[in-house]
Design a protein around this nucleic acid. Structure first.
Lengths: 204, 204
DNA sequence: CGTATGCTCAAACGATCGTTTGATTCTGCC
DNA sequence: GGCAGAATCAAACGATCGTTTGAGCATACG
């Protein structure tokens, strides 16, 4: 049924890369299928439409991300010794580590782009996949920050998410230097982000 | 030469709104000119091309934003009594207040979208318009945070910018309630952001 | 008044888009 | 081997895109 990698998988990988570079509208199916080495009609045959393909590109990565995040959260949630930094690490590290799986760093740009596209159907799709994850994290944050009321906590988590999204997309001034590996850079980013977020979350 | 508002101005205003809703690629010149009440050919006549129009949409707002930011910074930079929150206010408030000028809130989405689009020419354009502003703010931050080395400071400013961009675009969980005006909501956002950023910037 | 200039307009151009079609090739099973 | 269904292919479809064209209208100046 498959060659070394299936047509479907090759399309998803090429789509992720091309969407990251050119955007969802900017990347045409002709560029996409050419990069994947498949026929133009393959996308509509396997996915039904370009829009469905976009959803699948997201689903493939977001399912893994959410699973990873919740697994890390489960290790520390509710435990007596848990620190704020531990929960932040469970929230932040899986997102940044997504770039370690093949071509995952491109997905970060896709994700950041999706946030900006502000497309309602896509936004709803993300909300459905993110909703229960955010709920669990918020509950644990609330446990560790009992002096904050709910509204105040929501504000601060939102700002943390903003900083994380920004850092994930790699748009900022901070660029990886040639003498550090991508993994080292990611760990630096995570460490900075966790300390920054912890200070921003817990200040009186 | 002009009607009540000139064709050029009507195009710019309609473009800003439509770009925010549909994106740069998603908004067609036919939708745009129809919304502006002008002829289809007017865009190419007055701006030369769609791409030039995009640049002008940015330039109109970014010039005002940079001017406003630098004016606020000049009030506090180098002064002995200046607090970190004062510099952050000069950095953050003009960005959020951009939404008070007509239809300015739509521009925030356009800006956030431009960050995500990652288009190199647009990125370079933003860098050229932002570069000297960031330099001046960074210098003042460095003065008030002498215990941070340059690399550490860059990291933290980058994260602040991420949180600001996120808050500006209004993508987060935090939505304006019906019982608060837009101005009140913007001031709440600014206050939260400044305190959050101050804690994240100045932590040991 | 005549004319030059700036602007607007309907119409068309070529290009590219996502999608569909129908024939062809590949694959697994009896 | 032969057949059924899945998969791939080249080709074309209609729609929409940004841009260009050339005629028509307005305004200002001699």
């Amino acid at each position: 049924m498959n060659s070394s990698t299936s047509t479907k998988e090759r399309i998803l990988t090429a789509a992720e890369a091309l969407f990251a570079q050119r955007g969802f509208d900017g990347a045409s199916l002709r560029q996409l299928t050419a990069a994947a080495g498949v026929n133009l009609a393959a996308v509509n045959y396997h996915f039904g439409s370009k829009e469905k393909l976009v959803e699948q590109v997201f689903k493939r990565r977001l399912d893994a991300l959410n699973q990873h995040r919740l697994a890390e959260l489960a290790k520390v949630a509710g435990k007596p010794g848990t620190k704020l930094e531990d929960v932040l690490a469970a929230y932040i590290r899986p997102a940044l580590e997504l770039s370690h799986e093949g071509n995952g760093s491109l997905f970060m740009r896709v994700l950041a782009r999706a946030f900006a596209e502000h497309d309602d159907t896509l936004r709803q799709f993300l909300s459905e996949n993110y909703g229960h994850v955010m709920k669990q994290f918020t509950a644990e944050f609330a446990r560790l920050l009992p002096h904050l009321d709910k509204a105040e906590l929501y504000w601060r988590i939102d700002l943390v998410t903003g900083a994380l999204t920004h850092a994930m997309s790699g748009f900022g001034m901070i660029q990886r230097k040639d003498n550090v590996t991508e993994q080292q850079h990611r760990e630096q980013t995570a460490a900075h982000l966790i300390r920054f977020a912890a200070a921003g979350l817990s200040h009186p």
